[in-house]
Amino acid sequence: MLNRASILRVVSKLLIPPIMVFALYVQFHGDFGPGGGFQAGVIFAAAFILYALIFGVDNARKVAPAWLTRTLLASGLLLYTGVGVVAMMLGGDFLDYSMLATDQKSAQHLGITLIELGVGTTVSGAMITIFLIFDGRLRAEKDD
């Protein structure tokens, strides 16, 4: 079955790295152009799902085992709240980035970058997890 889809395999092999790089670009360029954590997370997950569809979910599971995606899922949210708590400990309000650095603008920039990263991690983790779970269910059903 895999041999029949050689065109798909070659093309997706070419496409997946650019998609992932594009996701990172969207993630960190979100301040200047359209983009941000939500989009980046979804694009990253899309690249992963493409990989899983073409090369088989078993290989994909080797790349991203369940514990990894679940950790991603949780760590993004943790990073987000972490930024808020750190700001609070430094004497500001919850999620008040002005405390993170001396200069107002760079502090805001740092805060935004960090929480966008958190958003991206959680969203991509969530999408990949949901996809893998649906697939695992499918497989369990086929075994019956």
Binding site: G36, F38, G41, V42, V123, A126, M127, I130, F134
Partner: peptide
């Protein structure tokens, strides 16, 4: 923007 992503997550829950 946020509603779209939340929407797909809740859709997944419904599915």
């Amino acid at each position: 923007l946020t509603a779209i992503v939340v929407g797909v997550a809740t859709t997944a829950l419904g599915l």
